[in-house]
Write a protein that binds this DNA or RNA. Structure first.
Lengths: 166, 166
DNA sequence: AAGAATGGGTTCCGAAATAGAACTTGTCAA
DNA sequence: TTGACAAGTTCTATTTCGGAACCCATTCTT
């Protein structure tokens, strides 16, 4: 499977990855959420090759995740801003980040904290069920075909045993 | 920046990406959460090159996300199972998936639905503040250095005017 | 006993993506 | 006239990937 085919897979994760499924793209988005907006800033902060950065910004813009906004004319200069579609990726970024805080931080703890303006606390993201509000656990979920499922969609239904504890 | 350097970045997102930050790895994990466990099954369902699959399974195992478990002796056969650390990635996968359901699904709707055994409803993940329980929004968050922050850690606070050093 | 099948890989090659550096373009200021 | 700045584009060398073939220990089929 190639990158170009990914967005046609009958899987929302695959389709998401066709937009943000590479290392640099996610790091560019991290910077966007830190309010970084300009080409040179991305380049300096990330240490990314310029043409790779140009490519990722172009793709994210085409995907509607970022929008180019002129911040001056003559010479025309443009910066990249998150759209609503881009801002909607925040929970995903935060979930990855929280996992890193928990499993990849050194003994000192995480390098960056987030404070919720609304309640004033240092927070992390909690992933809860949209219906009952309970924290979500992979073992409490089953899957079934949705309206966009192809005709012969196979969903493996195997006996599920608990995972091995590390 | 190379892959090998990513896990030493002072950023939990970068460190997470050093483990799961590539397309195939996330798709392998998708299959794991669908209870796929064996080499041949991963290969057939994903259409991934075998040596790439072998490499990703090895790296995920070394990272403690998967564990190799023998399911028969003579001949010895092993399968890959999510550890607790791996299961903890579920909210992140689900957040990416929900974004895809919302922004990348065709007019028919998403191909796969998830049902919460606990409450019986078809659900999606909601990302809420761990302290006040309100839904999280990127614009309601500020960042500040955490205990693991390096000495001269620069955090851009305002919309960028001039270059912000790293 | 010979040959095929099974599961889980490894090896090889050409194609594609990446890193790093140099070059381009439009504009203004010294 | 030269230089600086921002935002790219182009070049080459290296790395990774896709696809196919091959390997190997064991068990099944005939």
């Amino acid at each position: 499977m190639r990158w170009e085919e990914l967005d046609r897979e009958p899987c929302s994760l695959a389709r998401t990855l066709s937009v943000v499924g590479d290392r640099w793209t996610l790091l560019v988005l991290r910077e966007c959420f830190l309010r970084i907006r300009r080409f040179e800033e991305f380049e300096q902060r990330l240490g990314i090759a310029r043409h790779v950065l140009a490519d990722r910004l172009k793709k994210l813009t085409e995907a509607g995740v970022l929008a180019k906004v002129a911040y001056q004319e003559r010479p025309r200069r443009e910066e990249y801003r998150l759209t609503e579609k881009g801002l909607a990726l925040y929970p995903a970024l935060l979930a990855l980040l929280d996992w890193g805080d928990k499993y990849m931080a050194g003994p000192e703890g995480p390098p960056l904290l987030r404070r919720h303006k609304t309640c004033g606390h240092v927070v992390h993201a909690a992933s809860v069920c949209s219906e009952c509000g309970e924290p979500l656990d992979a073992r409490a979920m089953t899957v079934e075909p949705g309206p966009g499922a192809p005709a012969n969609f196979s969903i493996p239904q195997r006996p599920s045993k608990s995972a091995v504890d590390k």
